[in-house]
Write a protein that binds this DNA or RNA. Structure first.
Lengths: 197, 197
DNA sequence: GCAACAATGTAGTCCCTGACAACAATGATG
DNA sequence: CATCATTGTTGTCAGGGACTACATTGTTGC
């Protein structure tokens, strides 16, 4: 029938790409390995060669998500000039933008139901958060943030932004309140970090 | 065989109770209507009389979750004396405790994939958040928080706490870092809210 | 070049699940 | 106590994940 070659060539990538689309449009729940195979034009058993089970695919998806998020954060940060506050705002905005567009993916990234040896996943997450750590370090150098363990300060910032993302995806707040909330949160964070005696 | 009466009597409650257990122990993913029916000792079609589909059950579960969370927050707040900061700490701790113990349930509560007329659910969520609003109002009265729209301030607080919960359930942070992070976040929040000119 | 062998895709199957429909038993109401 | 609504049961269907045996293609050592 079809002149498609027996071997797909890059089935793994194709599956991940299609999976990302489906997750974005219909959520993780509705992601089916069999449907994925159909979409890509391959038999229902084929994905198994690349992902032993459903969770393995989701893990790979999460890992790719961290990579993309990290890249977007870095781009936003680097593109915001030298000023610390501007970079902070840009980075936070990029994070929230990601969370808004890829809510289901973000949820998956933090889902924590990954298989045991999720080494690569953890590393991907680390790399992502390292962008924010850099930012914190700059803020401390500039004197905008109090000195102290940057990890601890970073966690507060990360929690705040992640929480905003959670409120958006949980539709506790609407899209039109989003910018205001981000601005408020950052203002709070900055004032709270500067005021140390 | 069994002398169990034909009518269960309170099947709806029994299903919800068992579902809450299962969700806590194995997550939402692993919650099966049929298994639930078996656990409760009823045929696989019975749940349908009370929950037309799976989502309806999850919605009910989420609604009950909001009710319980609201009650726990209120208990914590009321039991913390009169001092604003003490009440704030107690409430935040209660929230995080809930998030830690019932991570999957909390996720479900914010899942936002509920059926259309989820009226009751929204009201339940409102009631829960109203506890935090009260707290904000007291803080403003006491002068611990800057004046202004309590909703806006409340959202920042809610986002921060919810974000911490997300980091815990996503195991970005470990349980032994949790208290420290909560303390840091509250300190940040208080300093950031007081410093207004 | 070509014979193994590895990698990758296919086809078939099993069991579980959610949704639905027809039927049975019980409770409520006049 | 007859009728009807409520609630539970049984049977069925389609779809999915996991697994197996088998087919096809790519690779490697001789």
């Amino acid at each position: 029938m079809s002149d498609r070659p027996y071997h797909h060539g890059n089935l793994r990538s194709a599956l991940l790409a299609q999976a990302e689309l489906t997750v974005r449009e219909r959520g993780v729940q509705d992601l089916s390995l069999r449907e994925l195979a159909r979409d890509v034009g391959v038999s229902h058993g084929a994905p198994r060669r690349h992902f032993p089970d459903r969770r393995a695919l989701l893990d790979a998806l999460a890992e790719a998500g961290f990579a993309r998020l990290g890249a977007e954060l870095r781009t936003a940060m680097d593109g915001a000039g030298e000023d610390f506050e501007a970079r902070l705002r840009a980075t936070a905005a990029a994070y929230v933008r990601f969370a808004t567009r890829d809510a289901a993916l973000l949820e998956l990234m933090f889902a924590n139901k990954h298989r045991e040896g999720a080494e690569a996943l953890h590393e991907a997450a680390e790399r992502t958060f390292s962008v924010m750590l850099e930012l914190i370090l700059q803020g401390q150098d500039d004197g905008a943030l109090e000195p102290g363990d940057p990890e601890r300060v970073g966690l507060v910032l990360l929690a705040t932004i992640q929480g905003i993302a959670a409120l958006v995806t949980g539709s506790v707040i609407q899209a039109d309140q989003l910018d205001e909330l981000v601005a408020d949160a950052i203002a709070h964070f900055l004032r709270g970090s500067r005021a140390a005696a």
